[in-house]
Design a protein around this nucleic acid. Structure first.
Lengths: 188, 188
DNA sequence: ACCTGAACACCGTTCAAGT
DNA sequence: ACCTGAACACCGTTCAAGT
C-alpha cells in the first residue's frame, strides 16, 4: 500500500466502483462468486478488473480496508475490559469468528493465507495474529493461561471452527465449540 | 447402495476404471481436480462419468468404500486399548484427522456434508460421527469427560482443525492443536 | 496511462446419435 | 441399457486496438 502517485481520475473511479460492487456481490454470493459478474455489474470490462486486482484475493484484500481497525479495536476492548480469563477469551473469540467470516467462504481463504506470505491477504492475517497474541499475552501475564500454548495454533483452531461453521448448510452456534477451546486454554 | 440388478459388463468395467482413475487423480491433484481429466485418463466420455456419478461427491463417496471400516476399527481400537482419557483422545483424534484428509480438499468437503443430509457423503459423515460418539461415550461412562460436551461439536472442531491443516501451504503438526481440544474435554 | 471487448482455453453438463 | 463425443454455457485470463 505505498502511496505511489495518485491514480488517474477514470482509473480511480473504476477502482472504487469495482470495490463497491464486489462488496455487494460477495455479500450476495460469497467470496467464490464470478469475477465476471462483478465486472459486469460494475460496468467495466473484465480486463479493467484484472488490471486493478490481478487475483481474487487482491480484491478481497481491498474490501478489508477498514477491517483491520475493527479487529484491533475489539482485541483492545477485550483486554481493557479486564474480565476473568474465560469471559475475555469468549468475547474475543466470538468477535474473531465474526470478523473472519465477513463473507461466505472468507474464513477458509483467510485460514489458508495464514501461512502463505505470498498471499495478498497475508498482511491481514498477520494483523489478526497480532491482535490475538495481544489478548493471549495479557492473560498469560496474569498466569491465567496454561503454559505452552502457541498463539498461532490458537488462531488456527478458531479459524477452523469458523470455517466449518461458515461452510455448513445449517446455522450453527459457535459458542459451545469455543467453550471447549477456552476450557483447554485457561488454568482453573 | 441397494444391490439392484447387476451392471452390464461394459458398464461395470467403466465404473471400476473411473473409480480407479479418480483415486489416482484425486491423490495427485486433490478433490477439486477436473472431472474431465478423470474421464479422459480413464478412457471414457464425459457423459459416462456423469451417468455413473452425477456429482463430484458421488464419486468421492465411491472412493471411500472401505474407508468406513477403517474408521470404525480405529475407534474400537482406541476404546479397547483402555488408556487414560488424554491418550485415548489423542490417538483417536489423530486417526480422525488422518481419515478425514484422505485427499487434499477432502476435509472441507466432509465437514460441509456433516449437516447436509442431501449430500452423497452424508452417510460417511454419520459413520464418522458414530465412531466418534463411541469413543466419547466410553470416556464419559468412566467420568473422565467434562459434562455437557456435544459429540457432534467435537467432531466439528476436529474437522475444522483438519480442514485448516489440509488447506495450509506448509506442513503443520496437528498435535499441539489437538492437545488444546483434549485439555478442554477431559476432567483433571 | 488506462479502458474495452473480442478471443482463447478450460471446465461442467446435456443430449442426440449410435451400438 | 449403455456409451460416445459434439455442443452449450460459463468462467478466468490475455491482449490488440483504441482513447
Amino acid at each position: 500500500m505505498p502511496a505511489g502517485r495518485p491514480m488517474r481520475a477514470d482509473a480511480r473511479r473504476n477502482y472504487d466502483k469495482i470495490v463497491a460492487t464486489a462488496r455487494v456481490v460477495f455479500a450476495e454470493r460469497g467470496t467464490d462468486c464470478s469475477l465476471d459478474e462483478i465486472a459486469r455489474r460494475a460496468g467495466v470490462g473484465p480486463g479493467t478488473l484484472y488490471r486493478h486486482f490481478p487475483t481474487r484475493e487482491a480484491l478481497v484484500d481491498a474490501l478489508m480496508k477498514d477491517w483491520a481497525g475493527r479487529v484491533v479495536r475489539d482485541a483492545e476492548a477485550a483486554v481493557t475490559a479486564d474480565l476473568p480469563a474465560r469471559a475475555t477469551l469468549m468475547t474475543w473469540f466470538e468477535s474473531f469468528v465474526e470478523h473472519i467470516t465477513l463473507h461466505r467462504g472468507a474464513a477458509a481463504k483467510l485460514c489458508a493465507a495464514m501461512d502463505d506470505p505470498s498471499s495478498p491477504i497475508f498482511g491481514k492475517c498477520q494483523i489478526m495474529g497480532e491482535a490475538n497474541r495481544r489478548v493471549l499475552d495479557h492473560l498469560e501475564a496474569r498466569g491465567e493461561l496454561r503454559p505452552g500454548v502457541d498463539a498461532q495454533n490458537v488462531m488456527r483452531i478458531i479459524g477452523g471452527i469458523a470455517s466449518v461453521t461458515d461452510s455448513s448448510r445449517v446455522d450453527l452456534d459457535v459458542r459451545p465449540m469455543l467453550e471447549v477451546v477456552v476450557d483447554g486454554l485457561v488454568t482453573d
